[in-house]
Design a protein around this nucleic acid. Sequence first.
DNA 1: AAAAACCAGTTGCAACATGCCATCGGAATC
DNA 2: GATTCCGATGGCATGTTGCAACTGGTTTTT
Lengths: 175, 175
Amino acid sequence: MNSKTDAAHRSGCPINLTVEVVGDKWSLIIVRDMMFGNRRHFRDLLTHSQEKIASNILADRLRRLVTEGIISKTDDPSHKQKAIYSLTEKGIELVPVFAMIGAWGSKWLPVSEELSIRARLLEEGGPPLWEEFMDDLRVAHLGKRPRPGAAGPGVRERLQAAYEEVLARNGPAAC
Amino acid sequence: MNSKTDAAHRSGCPINLTVEVVGDKWSLIIVRDMMFGNRRHFRDLLTHSQEKIASNILADRLRRLVTEGIISKTDDPSHKQKAIYSLTEKGIELVPVFAMIGAWGSKWLPVSEELSIRARLLEEGGPPLWEEFMDDLRVAHLGKRPRPGAAGPGVRERLQAAYEEVLARNGPAAC
DNA sequence: AAAAACCAGTTGCAACATGCCATCGGAATC
DNA sequence: GATTCCGATGGCATGTTGCAACTGGTTTTT
């Protein structure tokens, strides 16, 4: 029927389609940095990531993620050259996927303690914490107004604080 | 410190390590077919998949998944040439990841109804259903004995039945 | 005002991965 | 004894990734 759109896909299976969209070595890393690291600019993503992505790959993936509707790109009013990348609702709703991937990775792969603390907290917090985190992201990325009950540091800040605490405990040289 | 093992990894982040292991276009598809489609042999995986994987890629990915400890390979006693591939506990515990990926894909991507019914049921069932499914898989793949309370069709059979029901409703020609 | 640093990418090129098709030697089946 | 089935493997074209250098333009520093 809709052969024109279908032709691009191997199958209509949800797993397969998801893999087609984010099943490469970099897309999820970029979304992770935007989500948990609050990186919103090209340079931010390029230089402040643990994994040292190349600039052409980053440019290509950002373009693709925009095309897929997982992130959006707008001009930075304070700086004519800067572009701001934001998560869309579609991107924000990847939080539970990240939570599960992080939990599995922490359990089965040789993760470093500093970097797994976030995954552990996110797993322990469960769906309520994910919802709170997604609400925070909607405020930061979609311009939604904060929920009335929201006060104090957001989920991202709390995860970040926990990370830095582990770092400080294990010796400052680790960073 | 452990530079020899670290050298192979871009970082110790759980998300990154997971992406390094299953972040390609085929690995999760193969695990999905073993998990939800009960495919245990090379030919089974090669010919009965929607996505038409090439035999050399399948051979390569099976080898890698065995190396990663996500599946295991044993001889088929009934057929000297056949190999049986089984999920390990590490592989079985990807169920929640699949559930979340399936849920996200069903919500945001152009899935076909037949193929998304499984994802929907798995999402609606929540963690209790995932646990039941993982127990079924432990019986089928690890040789564990069934739980005392387990009777009737397993989770996979129920998902499969739901899939076939949708197929029958939408016209048999769809397959 | 000139120089330096910063911005989001782009280009060229080599290496690697993927995909398709044909084929293999051994084993089971007819 | 021929055919089919088995888990792969090899050749080859194409696509993707990774690195380093570079671009045109903007902002900051001197």
